[in-house]
């Protein structure tokens, strides 16, 4: 039996849509189509996993993130069109605001305390949950397409930026200032790939991002628009399965960066690969999971990788293996970039 990692007990009962570790608490946040927002405490070394909290929202949940210092609150969004704040200490739910259609992505900026949400209504909204309800929405930006994926730079980046991947292969980069003042993107780009964007994630240092597409391909993009920097960008094929001359091209559902700058991708082929993007090398491939890799997340220390093996729906409404979330212990050899561990 291949080592898939520690399988969480009390897993989501329908497709997993997102995974995220809390930077402060180390808890694992999982959202799913069963309208659940679940919080787990999982330790692959001791082999114990506990479902700490379970919130239910009005509909399938697409994304959630921690939204307070010390990971004492979370924010979620989903098909119910609402951005909901769940207070972990009091257990209270509070609707921060709504979109005109499903909320696909949410982010929380720990520097400003602002909540960012992107939806299928083609809007990017910025909320301050501390303000009275009527003044909470401090930015409402019209985008060229429905939001499919968003990423906010982490604490390893000197500047805060949001990258939004949308329908129609549009990709926008926003600064907090630009977003709240004018609503104009700092950069309006187009995906270098010919197919729909699936997942976008910043490099830990914020100098660029990895963009995955439905056509088994990942692009490595640089923020710096000078020709010298842009010359280094590239895209590569992955998550393709060849059998008897037939190549099956799976969507790349998930991208997650390790704090050291290497990143994992998860595809519809059930495979998780770890890449060294700066050196264009694959570092590691984990044993295959039973179904699509719907979501991936590294914790802040980079010693845990959460893997959602949960059918996403790319082949229609088909019977699929049960939804599962695994937490793997990450060995340094699996994720150390060729240039060594960054200081």
């Amino acid at each position: 039996m291949a080592d898939l990692g520690l399988e969480l007990s009390s897993p989501p009962t329908d497709g997993v849509t997102s995974l995220r570790f809390g930077d402060d608490s180390g808890l694992l946040l999982a959202t799913s189509w069963d309208a659940g927002v679940r919080l787990y405490d999982a330790d692959p070394v001791s082999g114990s996993s506990t479902l700490r909290q379970h919130f239910t929202t009005p509909g399938p949940v697409f994304d959630a993130c921690f939204a307070a210092g010390g990971d004492t609150a979370i924010v979620s969004g989903g098909l119910g069109k609402s951005v909901v704040r769940h207070d972990l200490t009091s257990g209270a739910d509070d609707v921060v605001g709504t979109h005109g259609a499903a909320v696909k992505c949410v982010e929380w900026d720990h520097e400003t305390g602002l909540i960012l949400s992107g939806g299928w209504d083609g809007r990017l909204k910025c909320w301050d949950a501390r303000l009275p309800e009527e003044r909470r929405c401090i930015a409402d930006v019209e985008l060229p397409g429905k939001v499919y994926s968003m990423s906010l730079t982490g604490s390893g980046s000197p500047t805060r930026r949001l990258v939004v991947a949308m329908a129609g292969r549009a990709v926008h980069v926003y600064t907090p200032m630009g977003l709240t003042m004018s609503g104009a993107p700092e950069q309006a780009r187009e995906s270098p790939m010919g197919h729909q964007s699936r997942c976008v994630r910043w490099l830990p240092d914020g100098t660029g991002f990895a963009l995955a597409s439905v056509e088994g391909r990942v692009a490595w993009e640089y923020l710096d628009l000078t020709p010298a920097a842009q010359e280094k960008k590239y895209a590569f094929k992955c998550h393709r399965v060849r059998d008897a001359g037939v190549e099956t091209i799976h969507p790349v559902h998930a991208v997650a960066f390790h704090p050291w700058g290497t990143f994992a991708t998860g595809g519809g082929d059930g495979v998780v690969n770890v890449w060294d993007g700066a050196h264009k090398k694959r570092l590691y491939q984990y044993p295959k999971y039973a179904t699509s890799i719907a979501a991936l997340a590294f914790n802040a220390d980079g010693d845990k990788l959460a893997v959602a093996a949960s059918y996403v729906g790319e082949s229609g409404d088909a019977p699929a293996p049960r939804d599962a979330v695994y937490v793997r212990k990450v060995e340094p050899g699996e994720v150390t970039p060729k240039s060594g561990v960054p200081k």
Binding site: K104, H195, Q196, V214, V246, T248, I249, V312
Partner: peptide
């Protein structure tokens, strides 16, 4: 032969 599992550009899997 190549088979693209998701080739619908008009909408996402979700």
């Amino acid at each position: 032969e190549t088979v693209m599992v998701w080739d619908d550009e008009s909408e996402s899997i979700e």
